[in-house]
């Protein structure tokens, strides 16, 4: 046996690194699972995602065409949640509505996260005038009344899912940018970052591989809350008649229900419950992720 060299140590170190990663995941799950409400909500999200994906298979009727007598109350034969003013099955509509809500929620959150991380990282890492300019822009976007602006932009430029997602995403990134910036500001002068810098690692790699992984915890939390608020915004836009007319959405169902409040209460009740439950779910998930990813905060409060 030769004398041990640096190379011999490498596989061990890698193995150790893997082990800590696994432990981190296990520890994360351990902490997350202590928040019972969050676990229940995770289950709900999975069920809703499954329902949305399988909507054409599991919904009993075509949500867009009348299949029975108009305005049948819930519990009517064949119509668990009743039918709407055109005789369309409410249950099938509620299931299909999950598709738009989830899609808008996830895509908006993804867009907003990428944009927010980019802007926050640049501002926090470089500081100085870059930070100044980017933070003024962020403040400006935070000041804008998001919902009203989204309503007007979609009203002016036409509805459609893609446009709607883009508009809401462009108005949703500031919170992420702020938390990322704070993280970068604290870490840019940390010892391990200095070490990378003096050993000649280029800035973009320091940003992406050294600092970014360490500030992702709050980003994930904010992303979960972004999903919730994007779902609410989509519902509001659809309620204003600015959703995509070719797909079923819960907000759009509530718009139609508005005219039938006196005669068909169920048209308003079920889509609204669906929105509230899904939004609540992502809010609780956000709290759960926060507890699991920032344990010190939990101990303080």
């Amino acid at each position: 046996m030769s004398t041990p060299t640096l190379h011999d140590a490498t596989p061990n170190a890698e193995a150790a690194g893997l082990a800590t990663q696994e432990n981190a995941l296990g520890e994360f799950w351990y902490r997350f699972s202590r928040n019972r409400a969050a676990v229940v909500c995770l289950f709900v999200v999975i069920v809703v995602i499954a329902a949305a994906l399988l909507a054409p298979l599991i919904s009993p009727y075509d949500p867009m065409s009348g299949v029975g007598a108009a305005q049948q109350p819930p519990g009517s034969p064949g119509h668990l949640l009743g039918t709407d003013h055109l005789g369309r099955d409410m249950f099938s509509q509620v299931i299909h509505g999950a598709r738009v809500s989830l899609m808008v929620g996830f895509v908006v959150a993804a867009f907003a996260t990428v944009l927010g991380v980019l802007i926050g990282a640049l501002a926090g890492y470089y500081g100085g005038w870059v930070d100044n300019v980017l933070m003024r822009v962020t403040e400006f976007f935070q000041t804008l009344p998001r919902l009203v602006l989204a309503l007007i932009i979609v009203a002016l430029f036409g509805s459609g899912l893609t446009k709607l997602i883009l508009v809401v995403a462009i108005l949703s990134w500031p919170q992420t940018a702020r938390v990322v910036r704070t993280g970068f500001r604290t870490l840019r002068s940390a010892a391990f970052v200095d070490a990378a810098r003096v050993s000649g690692v280029p800035s973009w790699r320091i940003i992406a591989t050294e600092i970014l992984p360490n500030v992702l915890a709050p980003v994930v939390v904010v992303a979960s809350l972004d999903v919730a608020s994007a779902i609410l915004t989509e519902a509001s836009l659809s309620f204003f008649g600015l959703g995509d007319p070719n797909v079923v959405s819960w907000g759009g169902m509530l718009q139609q229900a508005q005219q039938y409040l006196r005669s068909a209460w169920w048209m308003a009740v079920f889509p609204g419950i669906a929105i509230a439950v899904l939004v609540l779910t992502f809010n609780v998930l956000g709290d759960g992720l926060n507890d699991a990813l920032n344990p010190r905060l939990k101990d303080k409060d």
Partner: peptide, 22 residues
């Protein structure tokens, strides 16, 4: 508090109408 963050205000309006008006 959690409900306040999750219930869309326009739907709450509709439910209030259903309950207290209709």
């Amino acid at each position: 508090t959690l409900l306040g963050f999750s219930v869309p205000e326009f739907w709450l309006g509709q439910i209030l109408i259903l309950l207290f008006a209709v």
